[in-house]
Amino acid sequence: MVKVTFIEESGKRREIDARPGDPLMYAAKDAGIDGIIAECGGSAMCATCHCYLLEAPNGPLPEPRIDEADTIEFNAHAPQPTSRLTCQVMVSEALEGAVFQVATGR
Rank of each mutant, 00 (worst) to 15 (best):
V2I: 13
K3N: 15
K3W: 02
K3M: 05
T5R: 14
T5L: 00
I7L: 07
E8R: 03
S10D: 15
S10N: 14
R13Y: 09
R13H: 13
E15S: 09
I16F: 03
I16G: 02
I16K: 01
D17L: 12
D17A: 13
D17I: 00
R19Y: 01
R19A: 13
G21K: 04
G21P: 05
G21A: 04
G21S: 06
D22R: 09
D22N: 13
P23E: 01
P23W: 02
P23C: 06
L24N: 11
L24W: 11
L24T: 08
M25T: 02
M25V: 10
M25C: 11
Y26K: 11
Y26F: 13
A27S: 15
A28W: 07
K29W: 01
D30M: 05
A31Q: 02
A31R: 03
A31V: 06
D34A: 10
G35D: 08
I36N: 03
I36Q: 02
I36C: 02
I37Q: 02
I37Y: 10
A38G: 08
C40E: 01
C40F: 01
G42S: 05
S43K: 10
S43Y: 08
A44M: 13
M45H: 04
M45V: 07
C46M: 07
A47L: 07
A47V: 09
A47N: 04
A47M: 07
T48P: 03
C49Y: 05
H50W: 05
C51Y: 01
C51T: 15
C51A: 15
C51M: 10
Y52V: 01
Y52D: 05
Y52F: 15
Y52R: 02
L53A: 13
E55V: 14
G59V: 07
G59S: 12
G59Y: 07
G59M: 11
P60Y: 01
P60I: 02
P60H: 04
L61P: 10
P62C: 05
P62D: 10
P62I: 03
P62R: 06
P62S: 08
P64S: 04
R65N: 12
I66Q: 15
D67Y: 06
E68V: 05
A69W: 00
D70Y: 04
I72G: 09
I72P: 08
E73R: 14
E73F: 07
F74R: 14
F74I: 15
F74E: 12
H77E: 14
H77A: 14
P79K: 12
P79H: 10
Q80I: 08
P81F: 11
P81V: 13
P81M: 12
T82W: 00
T82M: 01
T82P: 00
S83P: 05
S83M: 10
R84N: 11
L85T: 06
L85Q: 08
L85G: 06
L85K: 09
T86C: 13
C87F: 07
C87M: 08
Q88L: 03
V89P: 06
V89T: 15
M90Q: 09
M90L: 12
V91G: 03
V91N: 06
V91K: 09
E93S: 14
E93V: 05
A94I: 00
A94T: 09
L95G: 09
L95M: 10
E96A: 12
G97A: 08
A98K: 02
V99I: 15
V99W: 00
V99C: 04
V99P: 02
V102I: 15
A103W: 06
A103C: 04
G105M: 04
R106P: 07
R106Y: 14
